[in-house]
């Protein structure tokens, strides 16, 4: 589904990603861990097409196409979804309007009819239950004045509505209490299908108790320094990252 090869990316003249290789197949869950500033969010943003980052080397192939040549909205229309580490507040645009606009664009791209407001309301009802969100969040402006946990849930709500093929969750667990974490994880798990895949960026092994990964990758200094199975996360939890960084340097 996704094949990242020797990916280098910079912001300004600063190189942040320095040769990432990663392959994700349909049905898989990959966890990406790593110390602060190692480039996890940059990787996620580059996949979504953020204009602040320039890819200087390497390639990303998604479903057989050159992902990097596509505009962000086209990537989304083709099934890529990024749950932002810091969801953006958009005062003046209601959550409901925003989600219906996004949903309709994605349906259009799939050659489907636009949804009418009433059917959309029903769909939202169902999806809001999944993330245990109150319906009054729909009439509020996108993420505006939402608590940290509400913003993260709103990201998962969008994911539930848009049903992406490849979801990248950037620290969706950070700042969540255990109940919220369970809700978010439940949301992600119930959206899992054999034909879609998830990349979970996280600092904490605890999330991986709920969203069980097939692979765990450790990102440090803009490179993947170690990949393994879900046990690697436990090892990192116990030992931290230093031993890996030392090994990588050695």
């Amino acid at each position: 589904m996704l094949e990242i090869k020797n990916l280098h990316a910079s912001a300004g003249d600063r190189e942040i990603l320095r040769g990432i290789d990663l392959t994700v197949n349909a049905g898989e869950v990959h966890a990406v861990m790593g110390p602060n500033g190692s480039g996890k969010s940059t990787l996620a943003q580059v996949l979504a097409g953020h204009p602040a980052y320039e890819v200087t080397e390497g390639s990303v192939t998604y479903e057989g196409q050159d992902l990097l040549s596509l505009d962000p909205e086209i990537r989304a229309q083709q099934g890529i979804f990024l749950a932002f580490q810091y969801p953006v507040e958009i005062p003046g645009v209601s959550n409901a309007y925003f989600m219906r606009a996004a949903y309709n664009e994605i349906r259009k791209a799939r050659g489907e009819e636009e949804i009418d407001p009433i059917s959309f309301a029903d769909l939202m009802d169902e999806k809001m239950k999944l993330v245990e969100m109150d319906s009054d969040m729909l009439s509020r402006s996108v993420n505006t004045g939402f608590s940290g946990g509400e913003k993260k849930r709103n990201e998962i709500l969008q994911m539930a509505v848009l049903e992406p093929k490849l979801a990248v969750l950037d620290e969706t667990d950070s700042g969540l209490d255990i109940d919220a974490l369970r809700i978010v994880a439940h949301g992600v798990n119930s959206l899992k299908r054999p034909d879609n895949a998830t990349i979970v960026v996280t600092h904490y092994q605890r999330l991986l108790n709920y969203i069980v990964p097939d692979y765990v990758h450790v990102l440090a200094g803009g490179r993947i320094v170690r990949s393994g199975g879900k046990d690697l996360a436990l090892e990192l939890e116990a030992k931290g990252y230093d031993w890996l960084l030392e090994e990588a340097v050695a």
């Binding site: 097409g49 505009d71 990537r75 990024l82 969801p87 958009i90 925003f98 664009e105 848009l162």
Partner: peptide
């Protein structure tokens, strides 16, 4: 904000108008 809207599939032009 523009990028956020686009990352949800909303066309650049529409995002700007919104």
């Amino acid at each position: 904000a523009l990028f956020y809207l686009k990352s949800r599939g909303i066309a650049a032009r529409t995002a700007r108008q919104l």
